[in-house]
Design a binder for these strands. Structure first.
Lengths: 252, 252
DNA sequence: GATTTTTCATAGGATTACTATTATTTTGTA
DNA sequence: TACAAAATAATAGTAATCCTATGAAAAATC
């Protein structure tokens, strides 16, 4: 049972746009793998409340101290109600991280629209990876700056679990993989001979998180320092790393 | 309170050698930060039993499902007795990871003894980082192959916690940092102009773990495949990354 | 206005993450 | 060998976590 491959669902989480009924503003809906939730949290007031406040609470407490009970108290609802949306806090974390990656993928799509030079494309990708919080998405229940912090601090736990193989089959990580593949494609456009495009893509994605985290908490594990909102050093690091790798084939 | 800097203890965990009383074999003792345990587990039969079996059980269950209760049942002792050695399972994980990193540091020391060429040194370091399990250490209660799997699967959780700043001050991560610094030093010897030696060092260490994990569980996130005991593809990947970075300054 | 769905309130059970107490065993030392 | 000190085991217990179940109230849909 449950050996369901994500064939009917697109690998890349779609970002659909529609019109809010009353105002004329465009709202975005990030459609994620249905396996990630029991009831779509974006479809109800309570669901959106769960998402909004779980982001804030996860940021405050960290995954280990975070519980559905504490979340329920904060949103003045009950544990049982939260459980109707998510099977457990791990799945909720996967949901939030997937949301983040789908959104990054979408931002890249927009930023690189009409850009034909893949070197320029990569440059924009690296900027978005490091500091995706600059432009606030028009989704009132998602605080992207805070979600970014959660992804930096907690997202390795998404796939470092005993259930990784099962969850992978369920399509839990498709948005992350889709993002990785897209970046790898751009890398290959720049340098078709480069032998490790996917490894370089994941490494860049992981570095973007790690070195922000290190700069804040374990500064002696990195060479960059980040003060305030200025993420330029991290972007410079990623750029140096990426283009050094890609240019090497030319240099040979 | 508890603002105790690890000044009296050396930053690099020492690997001391001594003589076992009965046989003439040399045993190694990895001396770790005293903050990591309540009672030194290497100093008693029960303590060594805790270490040996927690490694096996962590590998079997993963950190989330692992409990001191289950461990106590396995070693036919009690929960309370385990608690006399470690404050909680997180600290136990930090202890095990620190042990691993101290051991890697020691192996590097031995392998690179009398090697003066830093390029050769780096080559040996990368081999050890990827596949440190080849030579079994003479410590009967540590299964290094299994501990390596735990580090690959769980060790990011060591410092991805809300208490990271406090634990960092307590010196919880000194063995990891010491290893990072040593690698960074070798990198700088090879290429003094390289601007990100520490970032490259941590990246290589993280890649060594990540791409083994990806190859086993999320193969589409990497370009290498690992079958059986042959870790050569991972070593080739790391070597390519490292030397491409370092040679770039020359190429310019 | 009736029906279905969603949410709330409450309860409870198994497990976890500890702490405490006392008895017993082991170990170190005089 | 005998005594003291320390380590371990046995037992108990508490608060919290991670869920599941159920019936009633409220909201949404038809």
């Amino acid at each position: 049972m449950a050996k369901k491959y994500p064939t009917t669902k697109p690998d890349v989480a779609k970002v659909e746009s529609g019109y809010a009924p009353a105002s004329a503003s465009i709202t975005l809906k990030v459609q994620l793998n249905e396996q990630l939730y029991l009831r779509d949290p974006q479809e109800s007031r309570l669901g959106r409340n769960i998402i909004r406040n779980s982001i804030v609470l996860l940021d405050e407490l960290g995954l280990e101290e975070f519980t559905f009970k504490k979340l329920a108290i904060r949103i003045e609802s009950t544990e049982a109600s939260v459980y109707r949306y998510f099977a457990n806090k791990h799945t909720l974390l996967v949901y939030l991280a997937s949301y983040y990656w789908a959104w990054i993928r979408y931002r890249i799509e927009i930023e690189n629209h009409n850009i034909t030079n893949p070197v320029q494309q990569l440059d924009r990708i690296l900027n978005i990876l490091v500091d995706a919080t600059r432009i606030q998405l028009d989704v009132e229940f998602i605080n992207m700056a805070v979600l970014h912090r959660i992804v930096v601090a907690e997202s390795t736990k998404v796939y470092h679990t005993k259930l990784v193989d099962h969850e992978n089959q369920q399509g839990f990580f498709t948005t992350y993989k889709a993002l990785c593949w897209h970046i790898a494609e751009v890398l290959t456009l720049i340098q078709p001979e480069y032998p490790y495009p996917k490894a370089l893509a994941t490494t860049l994605m992981e570095m973007a998180k790690n070195h922000i985290y290190f700069a804040h908490h374990l500064p002696r594990l990195t060479d960059i320092s980040i003060t305030g909102e200025d993420y330029q050093p991290a972007i410079a690091l990623l750029r140096h790393f990426a283009f050094t790798q890609l240019n090497s084939e030319v240099a040979k």
